[in-house]
């Protein structure tokens, strides 16, 4: 039996904006699940419906077998970390973390012990008497995380918690959150619009668009087997190529409407290479952009632009306007 279940959940706001369109979703206990999608796709609204911060227009929400659709947030036993930290500015780190325990009316000695232990877990035990304004963004987000999990909720919700943090610290916190989630074995739902973040952190990714879940699966499945044009463009930097144009460029017929091809599956050479079981195209380099250890080339093949990733291995770079030959395995093409 699933731990969290959304059953035909619809949400329409007062202005008539239909944000969630019949969401059916079942999540397993102990997983870190990511709701991924572009801005306005309904991922945060779905999270807020589970938290009880938004009412569901239609449908039911179940947690651990119980119908929680009409329960107020404080009775759902769910912890949440917000994008803007939401720490209480007039309280110290210790008081912020203790807030939930004080609401539960836990004994004072127990509160002190649990606050200290959870702050040790997020490496902030020395900041217990400081105020949020005295902490960096990363430290504030760790306090918010400690505050959300100190009460040992059934579910932890993370609503784009790292989007206001700089790239380097974000990577550190991604690892820290994942490690903490696995150590505490807490069912976690993570909302993000960053596909790299979703890939790094998740057990399962649910991809949303226009108020619907369009695809779900493990990060690798989501990346290698997109089921739609949207999934292909959102999950990876896929080339979406009309099959007709591709057939014309390589001289072989392809039986579908569009093709999705990842930039890294192309082989790019200065001379022609006819391989069994592969398509060959000829083109000219029109753009070149280094991305760390890879270089992304844009190649114009018969008025069709294809992005190709080449590992920067010291073999020399292709020049702009240089004629090149692309080769791709037939099995690497995804028919859409």
């Amino acid at each position: 039996m699933s731990f969290i279940r959304f059953e035909g959940v619809n949400k329409t706001f007062g202005n008539g904006n239909h944000v969630l369109k019949g969401i059916d979703l079942e999540l397993e206990k102990g997983n870190l699940v990511t709701l991924l999608g572009p801005s306005g796709c309904g991922k945060s609204t779905l999270l807020r419906c589970l938290a009880g911060l938004e009412t569901v227009t239609q449908g039911r929400v179940y947690l651990d077998g119980a119908d929680i659709t009409d329960l107020p947030p404080q009775r759902r036993d769910i912890g949440m970390v917000f994008q803007q930290y939401s720490l209480f500015p007039n309280m110290t780190v210790g008081q912020n973390v203790a807030f939930g325990l004080r609401m539960e009316k836990a004994p004072k000695a127990e509160i002190e012990g649990r606050v200290r232990r959870i702050l040790e877990l997020v490496h902030l035990e020395e900041k217990i008497d400081q105020y949020p304004a005295q902490l960096s963004g990363g430290q504030q987000q760790r306090v918010a995380l400690a505050r959300a999990i100190v009460t040992e909720p059934k579910v932890l919700l993370l609503d784009e918690p790292l989007s206001a943090i700089d790239a380097m610290l974000r990577r550190e916190l991604q690892v820290e959150i994942r490690r903490l989630q696995q150590r505490l074995n807490i069912t976690t739902i993570f909302v993000t619009h960053d596909q790299d973040e979703a890939m790094v952190m998740s057990d399962v990714i649910y991809l949303m668009n226009g108020g619907l879940i369009v695809q779900h699966g493990s990060p690798i499945d989501m990346y290698t087997r997109p089921e739609s044009k949207f999934a292909a463009t959102f999950m990876g930097h896929y080339n979406i190529i009309p099959a007709e144009a591709f057939s014309r460029a390589c001289g072989e017929g392809v039986d579908c409407a569009d093709l999705a091809v990842r930039p890294e599956v192309f082989q790019m050479l200065a001379g022609p290479l006819g391989r069994e079981g592969s398509y060959s195209l000829r083109g000219r380099v029109v753009a070149r952009m280094p991305h760390g250890n890879i270089v992304r080339y844009t190649v114009d093949c018969d008025a069709m632009e294809i992005d190709v990733d080449v590992v920067l291995d010291g073999a020399g770079l292709f020049e702009l306007r240089q004629e090149v030959f692309l080769s791709v395995d037939k099995g690497a093409l995804i028919h859409l």
Binding site: A51, G52, L53, P72, P73, Q74, I78, G79, M80, F82, Q84, S86, L87, F88, P89, F99, G100, M103, E104, R147, A148, T151
Partner: peptide, 16 residues
């Protein structure tokens, strides 16, 4: 003080 956000945070921690 961004009242709605702080109230939501407190609600998630068990406060009415």
């Amino acid at each position: 003080v961004n009242m709605p956000m702080l109230i939501e945070a407190a609600e998630m921690l068990g406060a009415s």
